[in-house]
Design a protein around this nucleic acid. Structure first.
Lengths: 258, 258
DNA sequence: ATTTTATTCTGTAAAATTTACGCATTGTAA
DNA sequence: TTACAATGCGTAAATTTTACAGAATAAAAT
């Protein structure tokens, strides 16, 4: 959606192709240089950052829509993607928007009852992606992108800071019950790498010795016979995830006790 | 919504008051005679059971809508209510419905592009209620209700058995990380009562001694100086929840380890 | 009044898990 | 060859979970 013609078609006829009143808004987490980042797009005209969202096609399954939107924006197809909450409590978003905004900001003429002006619920997804494999696609409404450190998120358009906060909270809670890392790390990784990843996500220190013991005891990772050369220091062994165990733990959860 | 006039207004003009394309569908759990039950409504014309759902008003916050719908159907206002998933992957529900169905089943004339025929996503909520306090209200579309044992759920209309399954799964998972019982038990209860509740929800036995030790150690319940008379046996002490601790655990979760 | 029956209530030892912690090993650069 | 910085491994202490049995009690039956 880049030519003016396509945009006009989307604005005026989009409701025939897409389901109005509901959007999908993914919080895309990437991991780079020991920092947890999220991807935001720079909106034209609105002078601010927004989530890389999209709409559901009328005949498309919800989960397919989420994967499609992520693929469109990042070109990724192998990723962890999970719905986590529907947002519909923002007083700002309960209001319908007005047409003059579109004229001012984007130079688009919009009829007063246009589908894009109506109230929209937002389905929050979070995705875990390999930062280095993402290539971001922008469109008519967005002109740039940036990976923000989660400790330094700017105000987000459409009252969606809450979405990011809840995504992060969900991720942190979930990591206690599900393995994480398969989609954030390269296929082969070292103990220090996955250790730092967990520390970064949880925002606290974990004893490295106990941490690796636990992952191995759970059968989630296995040691390879290769090592990575990291310059002036002892070469760490490479590990990789035990795919079956990992998938099993994703499904069943790592339940602790009662 | 009981007179034919009201129903016709809802069918033909409902889209002005309500947001199309999204419904709220609550799975209402009650606890009675040591059984976990859910509430289903009997639909007229369709000859089947359905969840007690409803629509969101255009200017209403999502959470308000959920509470309103629950209040309308059960007359309860004090309950535990939580969103748990949006369902939009049912191939059956991706199809638009046709108008003739309304004519056949309910004797209602519906225009072919009526809002009720369009594809609708379903936001799943689950509620925990005090069974004895519920008084069910039916409407034009529903003629009866029944509390079904969770181990004996009938086929549910609109392809929503998955909703009940996921609600139960969520409840069972969540009980490991959050206290449950405040809205399912009377204010004062005995150890055997809450013990049986947990066994019922989890569907497995829990050692009674260790179970009560744990709840007390977590500071979630406190012993009262009263006892309940249960006829021919030793009178059990009454307990009640420690409200602050309980709320705190609800917020923070009972995190186990890493 | 005594016995019987069904249910509540309490404590402790063993096992498992988590936490804490120190030092030897290793790959390069100096 | 040495120094440095980071990896890698093992063990003891503390905590938590699990397993398990018998005394107490309320009322009904004798």
């Amino acid at each position: 959606m880049n030519t003016l013609e396509e945009v006009n078609d989307f604005v005026h006829n989009g409701h025939q192709e897409y389901l109005p009143h509901v959007s999908i808004d993914p919080v895309i987490f990437g991991y780079h240089q020991q920092k947890l980042k999220i991807l935001l797009l720079r909106w034209k005209g609105l002078d601010g950052w927004g989530l890389p969202g999209g709409f559901i096609k009328r005949r498309e399954l919800l989960s397919q829509a989420a994967y499609r939107i992520l693929h469109e924006k990042t070109s990724l197809s192998d990723l962890f993607l999970q719905q986590f909450h529907v947002f519909g409590d923002s007083p700002y978003r309960v209001q319908e928007r007005n047409a003059s905004e579109y004229k001012e900001k984007f130079g688009l003429e919009v009829e007063p009852n246009n589908w894009l002006l109506e109230r929209t619920l937002s389905i929050g997804y979070f995705a875990l992606v390999d930062y280095s494999k993402v290539s971001v696609t922008t469109d008519f409404f967005t002109e740039d992108y940036h990976w923000f450190d989660v400790s330094d998120i700017p105000p987000i358009l459409f009252d969606q800071n809450e979405t990011v906060e809840k995504a992060l909270l969900t991720l942190r809670l979930q990591i206690y019950h599900q393995p994480i890392g398969y989609n954030l790390l390269p296929e082969k990784f070292t103990i220090p790498e996955i250790h730092t990843l967990y520390e970064t996500i949880l925002g606290k220190e974990l004893d490295q010795r106990n941490f690796s013991k636990k992952l191995i005891a759970l059968g989630l990772i296995k040691k390879l016979d290769e090592r990575r050369s990291i310059g002036a220091h002892r070469s760490p062994y490479l590990y990789q995830f035990e795919k079956e165990q990992y998938e099993h733990a994703l499904q069943e959860g790592i339940v602790h006790t009662y």
